[in-house]
Design a protein around this nucleic acid. Structure first.
Lengths: 232, 232
DNA sequence: CTTTACATTTCGCGA
DNA sequence: TCGCGAAGTGTAAAG
């Protein structure tokens, strides 16, 4: 990993065209050849970058100013991604051996929530039993397809955070599922919108459409399943 | 902007829980308090980060090891985002004044394509004229609403790359628009799916639904509109 | 291998 | 401010 702080200007041409006027920025050159250009704000997204695999060629332009030309392998559309960095003044330049990173261990994402609810569907509604996870439909898989105590089909959409688009998604599923005679034998397919937190607007929309909202306690669910300790 | 290279381990708790085992990484502390933790690979996305606004508290843990605790303002759901960085060995530590960045100038994205096509709708179909851009509907704005030579309404969906989801989006718009008597007076609303490149699957689906596909030559369009030179 | 859906998405526009 | 859709999206799982 090489870190350079420099006054520079940057031109990018590839899927789009972009330009950065002269200013002082931080350049990161990673071991795989990728380049990141960061300013002192924004978010984790760099102002400009080049994704690996790519190659950096260091040179000097006609005016004697240091210039880096970063080129990526040709894209499918034949657009040659190119990043040109003109280094007008280098304020810092250091290289560090980082080694291979062991990587991030994640927990608490939607997939895990779906697994837990698949194992404990009754926490969503009394008497609910699982028919299958990722129930396939023409417009995508329904997270959980269940059946209630009366044998009525229940489609469950799971989100980490319950927002309007999730309700829309479940609505589309329900519309489609309710055209299937095999699923509607005991009555129309019901919907449950499950999330760790449901925004008021999403709840209003869901309930207006006859969809039940279920707030899920992730920690409690995990406790039922596998009482491992939290990280800290 | 402060840059630290250190052997460290990281724990994040907030919207999810995550852990980074001990390894050497690059830490960037930006002027707004945000923190980025980069490894020597991957992409421009850090292994872990904290978005602004947040505050960094430097301290020492019970074992005498330097520890940074980064806390974000409480989220709407009351989840306290916290990042704990244990600095086992600092290999580099430098601070740089970057100033305010003038920002990125972009060109060539979908918005610009939409502007160009709004000015030259006839490139999509002979005799096509613009009614309005971002034509509002209950499920979102239609990119371009036009009328053909016969007065029939034509909805245009514009994408940089034409894929199936774009066809689905246009289909939903057409379904809705065709319920409006004011738009269907001269016949059903027609659809045009416009993109710089359209994938075979998307083309097949579109044509199967009676939607016309139009491949747009961005450079030619830009030439018609404003013959400025490319950056390089 | 392609295709699909998620992301601690972030970012930008419009109402 | 909120809501919605795009992104040079990246990424991981599934078919």
């Amino acid at each position: 990993m090489r870190i350079v702080v420099a006054r520079c200007q940057v031109d990018y041409a590839g899927r789009l065209t972009a330009h950065l006027p002269p200013a002082t920025r931080v350049l990161m050159l990673k071991a795989d050849g990728s380049v990141l250009i960061h300013s002192d704000g924004g978010s984790y997204k760099p102002l400009n970058w080049m994704s690996p695999p790519c190659t950096v060629r260091e040179g000097v332009n006609d005016d004697g100013v240091a210039e880096w030309v970063v080129t990526a392998k040709a894209t499918s559309q034949g657009e040659p991604d190119t990043l040109r960095i003109l280094l007008e003044e280098v304020l810092h330049d250091s290289t560090h051996d980082l080694g291979i990173d062991p990587g991030l261990r994640k927990d608490g994402v939607e997939k895990h929530l779906q697994e837990l609810l698949a194992e404990h569907p009754a926490t969503l509604a009394d008497g609910l039993t699982l028919v299958r996870r990722e129930f396939p439909t023409a417009i995508g898989p329904v997270d959980l397809m269940c059946r209630d105590a009366a044998g009525v089909s229940v489609a469950v959409e799971i989100k980490r955070r319950g927002e309007i688009d999730g309700v829309e998604q479940l609505t589309r599923y329900l519309e489609l599922l309710n055209r299937d005679p095999a699923l509607t034998r005991k009555g129309p397919v019901q919907g449950i919108f499950a999330a760790q937190a449901i925004r008021p607007q999403a709840r209003t929309l869901a309930e207006d459409r006859g969809i039940t909202c279920a707030v899920v306690d992730y920690d409690a669910l995990r406790g039922m399943d596998d009482p491992t300790d939290r990280l800290f």
